[in-house]
């Protein structure tokens, strides 16, 4: 009886989580345009996708942007977290509070204010503005993730290292950074996903020179969902699944 309940419970959870994705994947193999009824198996949407250079370019752009902004946000955010944890300085509370403010702000507010800023600065909209915006909204998430990791550590470790003759840089490179690493990696992955995901902020700060995938799809589906988009989404889901499984495996082995 208990096992039954458990199975039903788990089944419901998985159904909620994966039913939409399963439907999408199945229909990416449906041999019909527009129609939601099953017309037989085909892989032609995948072939079409492979030929659609506009869509693929946008995908590559998105990945590039996500990788670049996640890396930048991770570097800046990690340093900020370490500074917040390790040093007492004026403006410390302001810095940590402002992190939360950025995290909590609605995307639409962020998007409009960033757009205004870039226009005032005279920056042409494109990769640069997208990059700066993505770094901005990813950074607090990295800081919070790394900070959580650092807070869980014994406060005397840095002092123990100094006591044993380590200078400030060695304390950082040999003690704090290695210990913060799981948080840093998690922060990077989170930033990468957030950047890849973002529609609203990107919508405001993007320019015609640099098209990214979410916006491209968004503009495409306004004319109805094309099966190619289904195929693309299925591919992206597959990639995500692979990446997540890989990181899980990596973390398990390190323990």
């Amino acid at each position: 009886m208990k096992r039954m309940v458990k199975a039903v419970y788990l089944g419901t959870v998985y159904l909620f989580l994966y039913l939409p994705l399963a439907v999408l994947t199945i229909y990416s193999f449906n041999d019909a345009k527009h129609v939601v009824t099953w017309k037989g198996f085909t892989t032609r949407w995948y072939v079409k996708l492979a030929e659609n250079s506009v869509l693929l370019d946008a995908a590559v752009n998105s990945l590039l942007l996500a990788a670049a902004s996640a890396t930048a946000a991770t570097i800046i955010g990690t340093l900020a977290a370490i500074a917040l944890k390790r040093y007492r300085f004026t403006g410390r509370t302001i810095l940590s509070t402002s992190m939360y403010v950025v995290m909590m702000s609605p995307d639409i507010v962020m998007g409009i204010s960033l757009l205004m800023l870039f226009v005032l600065m005279g920056l042409p909209l494109g990769f640069t503005t997208l990059f700066l915006s993505h770094v901005t909204f990813c950074l607090p998430f990295v800081t919070v993730t790394v900070l959580a990791r650092l807070t869980g550590l014994d406060g005397n470790l840095a002092e123990a290292a100094m006591d044993l003759g380590a200078r400030e840089f060695e304390v950082f490179s040999r003690i704090i950074l290695p210990l913060a690493m799981p948080g840093v990696l998690a922060g990077w992955l989170l930033s990468f996903t957030l950047s890849l995901d973002d529609v609203i902020i990107s919508f405001f700060v993007t320019g015609p020179t640099f098209e990214i995938l979410p916006l491209k799809i968004y503009s495409m589906v306004r004319l109805g969902v094309k099966p190619e988009v289904n195929a693309l989404c299925a591919v992206m889901f597959g990639v995500t699944l692979a990446v997540v499984s890989l990181t899980q495996l990596c973390f398990k082995e390190r323990k």
Binding site: L153, D154, N156, L157, E159, A160, A161, M162, D163, L164, G165, A166, R167, I175, P178, L179
Partner: peptide
């Protein structure tokens, strides 16, 4: 003088061994 230039070493209450 900073800690790293003093001829003393400390045994901490909670040991503070480097976990990694």
């Amino acid at each position: 003088l900073p800690p790293h230039r003093r001829a003393v070493n400390t045994v901490f209450q909670n040991y503070a061994l480097f976990p990694h």
